[in-house]
Design a protein around this nucleic acid. Structure first.
Lengths: 210, 210
DNA sequence: GAATTTGAACTGACTGGTCAGTGCAAAAAC
DNA sequence: GTTTTTGCACTGACCAGTCAGTTCAAATTC
């Protein structure tokens, strides 16, 4: 999150340090995983001493949990914003979904490391931060669920759809398609990828017309 | 959990030991990640001495790479089998896709740990087994791409679709939906989940009543 | 307004523990 | 008698977390 350099109360220096640590940690953990990433590495990459990490965060796990929350906050905000724009224009819910897909792709393009890390850690079981993961997952899926539910309510979507499951599937579709895009065909444009997913969403894959 | 001995080669004693090690490693690594899982744990869970691990595999990484290849072999076989069944019946390519989704869900239900591990490790960069990951990803996506290409060729799918990207998105959709199913709503039946994804695939979400 | 004090932020050497991988003699298994 | 497994002691590297000490800007005192 941007830190307004002035504002009262909180020490800005501390906030800046935390931000640097988030940025260092997110890339390292995305590349290597949580356990393979050492606190020394994070400190070095952030350009601070190891002690500073522990001055700002109670432990390596806590740093990770707060990083997760921080990033998911950005993601959900971005999704919601995408959806709300179409809402203001009084467009359909399919358009809202479409806008969210685009917003999701945009976010992932902007923060690929965070997305990598999110996908890699989300379905692990028996870990210290299990509850944080659940919360964080639910926050993302809930945004999509909201739009789906609205669409069902106004008759735009079939009542037969399973809202939670469909929402999860949509999120997965976007996440995985985007990661694949970044990792294996980064030359493609966002519009390109968005168009493909849009087509898939609207069932124009199995329809024969052009 | 349990799996029959894998077809080929008579079960040498060595083969059986390897299998036990795969099974032990897959659950542990799925839960904790590669780095957080120790060789001692794997040996203990497999009911084998640590020396045996190193008698059978050159290193922890090699064990992991071979485990990946082994599992992806099972997955692609299962997907292909699903698709081929509809092919024998001369059904449409949508049906083949549908059958593959079902086969994928079935596989994931049977080997949830492997799927967890696969998703968690697939988009990591800068790791020792990078090349193995690429190969293994391509094998899975290629199966889906094949069906899509066939469908485009016979006019059943629009020529506008981006085959590689759509294939990746479909794989992602199934993987994530299935992991979510297992992790957060395991009481649902396979049929249930399959029906939802099927509906999504065929664009009956945004469509009018069926 | 210069001198002094305060305390939040930061530093990095150090500790106690963990873990991948080795070596090898003896026992099983085939 | 060859292959495979066992058990276990050992090593060297690595790492999370600690803590006594440093820095410095703002607050306080004179």
């Amino acid at each position: 999150m941007e830190s307004s350099s002035t504002t009262s109360g909180g020490s800005t220096r501390r906030e800046a340090t935390r931000q640097k640590l988030y940025e260092a940690a997110v890339t390292l953990i995305a590349e290597q995983g949580f356990s393979a990433t050492t606190v020394d590495e994070i400190a070095e990459r952030a350009g601070v001493a190891k002690g500073t990490v522990y001055y700002n965060f109670a432990s390596k796990s806590v740093l990770f949990e707060e990083l997760l929350r921080h990033g998911v906050g950005l993601l959900t905000a971005s999704l919601r914003e995408g959806a709300e724009q179409t809402e203001r224009d009084g467009r359909s819910k399919v358009d809202a979904l479409d806008a969210m897909i685009r917003a999701g792709l945009g976010f992932i393009a902007a923060y690929p490391s965070f997305t990598q890390l999110y996908v890699a850690e989300l379905w692990r079981t028996n870990r210290a931060w299990q509850s944080t993961l659940m919360v964080v997952r639910q926050q993302v899926v809930a945004v999509v669920e909201g739009v789906l539910r609205d669409g069902v309510a106004n008759g735009e979507f079939s009542e037969e759809i399973d809202v939670p499951l469909t929402a999860a599937a949509l999120v997965g579709m976007v996440l995985v398609a985007a990661l694949d895009w970044q990792a294996f065909q980064p030359e493609r444009s966002l519009d390109d990828v968005h168009a493909s997913l849009s087509r898939l969403l609207q069932g124009r894959v199995s329809g024969r017309r052009s």
